[in-house]
């Protein structure tokens, strides 16, 4: 039982950076960014290739994050090219297409970076082993959970700080009322691109950590990231509330953990791992359609 709990916590905390990234695009920027399905394995691929190439796992992780940020930049620039006017902030077509294009292109990039479809990371030093050696602890079970909790808190407070700066306010307003913030002299093309870069950097951080924790990077590991991320965001908001930005960042981390617990329980109940993506999709559909259905039912 203990092992199941600590495993679910590990997964939830490792994936919480991805969920925070999805929160940043979907909720803060109002930009449904599909890049994440490609930027998660990108983080894993860059980190994996560098570690296998003999580089320090710290550098490899940072490079993975940097690569993810670049992917976000690309999506931002593609969106600039694809959108027609300045005033169509609710036109999601160009936003979706920009993400899809980057995601698709990243499949090739990831294969090129790794040189094959899978890099095993067994018997090499990962960031967890390096940290374990530094702290004289073995990075398994609860020790790993504690380290991840610390990392999640640091990232949470960095985001919290950023969103309360002058720049952060313009970032929030870009997703909330683009016409207004443009009329206030902010270049929303710039804020959006920076937001996308940060979000995809977070997603790539998850990719990098997943690879190092599970012991391999795989080109297919990003499939369904966007849906899992949404599931985490929605569950966090519903279960823990969203009274303020500082609070909702915690909620989203909580949502990520709850989601991984649900997966662990599903697997315990005998559900096949291959069925999980369908289940997650159904979960997201149900959560997103509740308000619509409720309105329709009331009207009848």
């Amino acid at each position: 039982m203990q092992v199941i709990i600590s495993n679910a916590l590990e997964q939830g905390l490792i994936y919480c950076f991805m969920v925070l990234g999805v929160f940043l695009t979907f909720r803060v920027l109002d930009f449904p960014d599909l890049t994440v399905d490609g930027s998660l394995p990108l983080g894993a691929a860059v980190t994996g290739a560098l570690i296998v190439g003999g580089h320090s796992p710290l550098l490899a992780t940072a490079a993975g994050v940097g690569a993810g940020m670049c992917a976000g930049l690309v999506t931002g620039f593609l969106h600039l090219l694809l959108k027609s006017g300045e005033s169509d902030s609710t036109n999601y077509g160009p936003k979706l297409l920009a993400g899809i294009l980057t995601m698709t292109a990243l499949y090739t990039v990831n294969l090129r970076v790794m040189g094959r479809s899978n890099i095993p990371l067994l018997g090499v030093e990962t960031i967890f082993e390096k940290l374990g050696a530094f702290l004289s602890l073995t990075m398994v079970g609860w020790n790993l959970v504690l380290v991840l909790v610390a990392l999640a808190i640091v990232v949470k407070y960095l985001l919290d700080w950023l969103l309360h700066t002058e720049f952060g306010l313009t970032l929030l307003a870009t997703g909330d009322n683009e016409q207004m913030i443009r009329a206030m002299g902010t270049n929303t093309n710039f804020t959006r691109i920076v937001g996308l870069a940060i979000a995809n950097g977070l997603v790539a951080l998850t990719g990098s950590l997943v690879a190092q924790q599970q012991g391999f990077a795989d080109v297919g590991m990003g499939i369904g990231t966007i849906v899992a991320g949404l599931a985490g965001v929605i569950m966090g908001e519903v279960i823990f509330g969203m009274r303020s930005i500082s609070w909702v960042l915690f909620s989203v981390i909580g949502g990520s953990i709850v989601y991984r617990f649900l997966i662990a329980i599903s697997l315990r109940l005998g559900i096949q791992p291959t069925d999980l993506k369908l289940l997650t999709a159904v979960l997201v559909v149900v959560a997103l359609s509740i308000p619509t259905v409720r309105r329709k039912v009331v009207r009848l």
């Binding site: 002058e166 720049f167 306010l169």
Partner: peptide, 8 residues
């Protein structure tokens, strides 16, 4: 220009 100082 908006900076990285506190907004409010």
């Amino acid at each position: 220009r908006s900076s990285l100082r506190r907004g409010v």
